[in-house]
Amino acid sequence: VSSEIYQWVRDELKRAGISQAVFARVAFNRTQGLLSEILRKEEDPKTASQSLLVNLRAMQNFLQLPEAERDRIYQ
């Protein structure tokens, strides 16, 4: 997982004009609270716990989908 993931998520929230709650639900089936905590802490993926890595990997995989497909999912 790239250490850029945190910025990618922030950029996607702005680009798509969606809330953290929507992104958390569709990208990795978690709550806004968890996403907020992940973004606030910005732990280095190289030293992250296994559970954090699973979530970061799910977010990264979601962000690799084509933009149009992500936008459809947000609706």
Rank of each mutant, 00 (worst) to 15 (best):
S2E: 06
S2Y: 07
E4K: 13
E4M: 15
E4W: 07
I5N: 01
I5H: 00
Y6M: 04
Y6R: 03
Q7Y: 15
W8D: 15
W8K: 15
W8A: 15
V9R: 00
V9P: 00
R10L: 07
D11F: 06
D11L: 13
D11Y: 11
D11E: 08
E12M: 01
E12R: 01
L13N: 00
K14Y: 13
K14F: 11
K14V: 14
R15C: 07
R15A: 00
A16V: 10
G17Q: 15
G17N: 15
G17E: 15
G17L: 06
G17M: 11
I18R: 03
I18Y: 00
I18V: 12
S19I: 03
S19W: 01
Q20N: 09
Q20S: 09
Q20G: 06
V22Q: 15
V22A: 12
V22N: 07
V22W: 04
V22D: 11
F23T: 00
F23I: 02
F23A: 00
A24H: 01
A24E: 14
A24V: 01
A24I: 04
A24K: 03
A24Q: 14
R25D: 07
V26A: 09
F28S: 05
N29Y: 05
N29K: 11
T31P: 07
T31H: 11
Q32S: 11
Q32C: 09
Q32A: 13
Q32T: 07
G33M: 12
G33Q: 14
G33P: 11
L34G: 09
L34M: 12
L34N: 15
L35C: 04
S36Y: 08
E37V: 02
E37S: 09
E37D: 15
I38K: 03
I38Y: 11
L39C: 04
L39I: 05
L39G: 03
R40I: 08
R40E: 14
K41Y: 04
E42Y: 00
E42N: 10
E43Y: 04
E43H: 07
E43Q: 14
D44I: 03
P45I: 10
P45F: 04
P45D: 00
K46L: 12
T47A: 11
A48W: 01
A48Y: 02
S49A: 10
Q50K: 12
S51Y: 06
L52I: 11
L52V: 12
L53P: 04
L53Y: 08
L53D: 07
N55S: 13
N55T: 08
L56D: 00
L56C: 05
R57M: 14
A58I: 07
M59V: 08
M59S: 00
M59H: 02
Q60A: 11
N61Q: 12
F62H: 05
L63D: 02
L63G: 01
L63W: 02
Q64Y: 12
Q64P: 01
Q64G: 10
Q64L: 13
L65P: 03
L65E: 07
P66V: 01
P66D: 07
P66W: 00
P66A: 07
A68R: 11
A68I: 14
A68C: 12
A68H: 13
E69C: 08
R70G: 02
D71P: 00
D71V: 02
I73M: 10
I73L: 11
